[in-house]
Design a protein around this nucleic acid. Structure first.
Length: 255
DNA sequence: ATGCCGTGGAAACCACGA
């Protein structure tokens, strides 16, 4: 079974690319972030025609997350992270698909740092970590995937020294990611490729993709029951080179 | 060193992204 995550940066503007990628790689389960579409503007029919049932939580202009599944309608568990009823951003959706609890997340960017946006990022990270502990304690097979907006280590940045003050790489967020993983999660890409330079994002500017000036910020965290089943993982980096591409590339795992 | 590009929404610019 193949599970993929893709920050599409606008699900409607990205629809041709998204459909082409779905057709070529045929993942069984897909997590999408940055829909940038209100609930009623999600391209449900086009996704259905491509062979996927969809669960989504839209928002006007920004954010927005979705879970797609070939096997049937994802069974919704929640469409927000617990812990802050005042938080109206559509950044988390969770459903059971094929016996796996799938959490699809879009962690806040946090720039500029320091500042209120960075504070929001750290608070969101704390809520995610608390919820992740609950998920682990359930003993169920869980996949927590999406755009974490964190480069966990120097290996995940093309030029680490340029990013030390950035909200995606400051010590606080690297520590937060490490704390989360230490609960007992497996970073799928790093389990299979502990020492390889692997990126999931390239800026639109400065020919970043051509120069391979990338970041690894889209991650798969697997609970022990899922980690045992992991057989392969990778990045569809060629998708980043397609016409009208997102600045992220899809990431996938094979169970 | 720098939102230099891209998206969406509102209004012919702005917010936001990483």
């Amino acid at each position: 079974m193949r599970i993929a995550t893709y920050n599409v940066n606008g699900v409607n503007g990205r629809l041709p690319v998204l459909l082409r990628w779905l057709g070529e790689t045929a993942p069984d389960i897909v997590c999408l972030q940055e829909l940038k579409a209100p609930q009623e503007k999600f391209p449900e029919q086009a996704i259905k025609d491509a062979g996927y049932h969809a669960l989504w939580h839209g928002q006007k202009s920004w954010n927005g997350v979705a879970i797609l599944a070939r096997s049937g309608q994802p069974a919704e568990i929640r469409r927000a992270l617990p812990g802050d009823p005042e938080d109206v951003h559509s950044r988390y959706i969770e459903a059971t698909v094929d016996g796996i609890v799938v959490g699809c997340l879009y962690l806040p960017n946090g720039n500029p740092a320091p500042g209120p946006k960075f504070d929001y990022k750290l608070r969101w990270f704390e809520r995610l970590t608390a919820h992740a502990a609950t998920l682990l304690a359930s003993g169920k097979p869980v996949v927590l995937t999406g755009d974490y907006n964190v480069m966990p280590t120097d290996l995940d940045v093309y030029k680490p020294e340029k990013w030390v003050e950035d909200a995606l790489f400051r010590p606080e967020v690297r520590t937060a990611f490490k704390t989360l993983v230490a609960q007992g999660w497996t970073d799928a890409i790093r389990k299979l490729y502990p020492d390889e330079k692997i990126y999931t994002f390239w800026d639109y500017f400065r020919n970043a993709y051509g120069r391979d000036a990338g970041l690894r910020i889209d991650h798969f965290l697997l609970s022990p029951a899922v980690s045992k089943r992991l057989v392969a993982a990778g990045v569809n980096r060629e998708v980043r080179g397609w016409e009208k591409s997102s600045d992220h590339a899809p990431v996938w795992i094979e169970l």
